[in-house]
Design a protein around this nucleic acid. Structure first.
Length: 310
DNA sequence: ATAGCGCCCTGGTGGC
DNA sequence: TGCCACCAGGGCGCTA
């Protein structure tokens, strides 16, 4: 399942492979992934767009499409996606005389089973294909999604700033000044178990089930610990472990399992507790427990993560 | 306000 | 061995 490290790995791969390319043709075989946007609107907005940059916000992948004519292909990008999302501010006024079209944003969320890969045109279409963007160098960016839970839409800056999940998204855990204080602030006055709060994208951006379990294990914090009882030291430790585990996973090209990057390579990051319920803790040998918490499978070590703070 | 649940979807798995 | 019911899971929208 793509979480922050997987989306970041994908973003970096796509940056190398498709940044600067122009979309010359689009093929949609499963319009469900447009999540209500009409095929006509998607086609009109993406055709002939030049992919000028690739950004990530939480688990969202955002591609900026410059839609001005090819004669202006070298015009520097002026729009900062992050600012649009963060400030919900109007796009900067264009200087008089310039006739640039406003950029379009491909707003992509892979959810559980989505994948985005660059293929050579002659490679056969794989099962669960939903959408292809054909590029000006002959390559094809193909979106596959077994469950069609994912989404890919072509939005204006205004529309993008109103995407609920983006507008309400919490801070990036790998940003320079994110730490225990910011994590505690994200949790706020809520008193429930800590783990579901880590999955809440308003608390911190990009953490999903794998990295929530892993960071709690590494911090020695029980997933059911009431967030209200965490000490400042524990928030510091948890925030530090979130950063460490996300960084390690990015360095490993994402988690092992179903996930593949833009080139189709599998990730190398191996979780220590996630999906290992019933197996031995790599740290102490205790049998890892598996519970359901907030509707999600949760694995932890009852020895390394005592329920009561020691 | 906020927490909890159902929904979307289909391959894999566990039980018989 | 084969079949089938059920489980997993991110995020949204609805309910209590």
């Amino acid at each position: 399942m793509p979480e922050l490290p997987e989306v970041e790995t994908l973003r970096r791969g796509l940056e190398k492979k498709i940044q600067g390319r122009r979309i010359v043709d689009i093929e949609i075989t499963n319009a469900k992934v447009l999540k209500g946007q009409t095929e006509t609107a998607f086609l009109e907005r993406t055709r002939n767009g030049r992919i000028s940059r690739l950004d990530r916000r939480g688990k969202y992948l955002l591609a900026t499409l410059e839609t001005n004519g090819s004669e202006n292909a070298t015009t520097p990008v002026k729009t900062n996606v992050a600012k649009i999302i963060a400030a919900n501010s109007p796009a900067p006024a264009e200087s008089a005389g310039e006739r640039e079209n406003p950029p379009v944003f491909l707003c992509i969320h892979l959810k559980m089973r989505g994948s985005l890969r660059v293929h050579a045109a002659e490679e056969p279409i794989e099962p669960y294909h939903c959408l292809t963007l054909r590029l000006d160098n002959g390559d094809e960016l193909r979106y596959h999604d077994m469950w069609t839970w994912g989404e890919i839409r072509a939005l204006t800056g205004e529309e993008l700033s109103k995407v609920a999940g983006l507008a309400a998204m919490g801070p990036e855990p790998l940003s320079e000044n994110w730490g225990g204080l910011e994590l505690a602030a994200g949790v706020g006055k809520r008193r429930g178990p800590i783990k579901p709060m880590l999955l809440d994208q308003k608390t911190v951006a990009g953490v999903g089930n794998i990295y929530a379990d892993e960071s709690l294990f590494r911090s020695g914090i029980h997933p059911e610990r009431s967030a209200g009882t965490l000490t400042p030291e524990e928030f510091d430790r948890l925030a530090r472990e979130i950063r460490t585990v996300l960084t390690e996973a990015i360095d490993g090209g994402g988690s092992m399992g179903d996930y593949v990057d833009a080139a189709g390579s599998a990730g190398r990051f191996e979780p220590k507790v996630y999906d290992r319920g019933g197996k031995a803790c790599c740290n102490c040998g205790t049998r890892l427990e598996k519970i359901r918490l907030g509707g999600r499978g949760t694995a932890f070590c009852p020895t390394c993560q005592p329920k009561i703070k020691i």
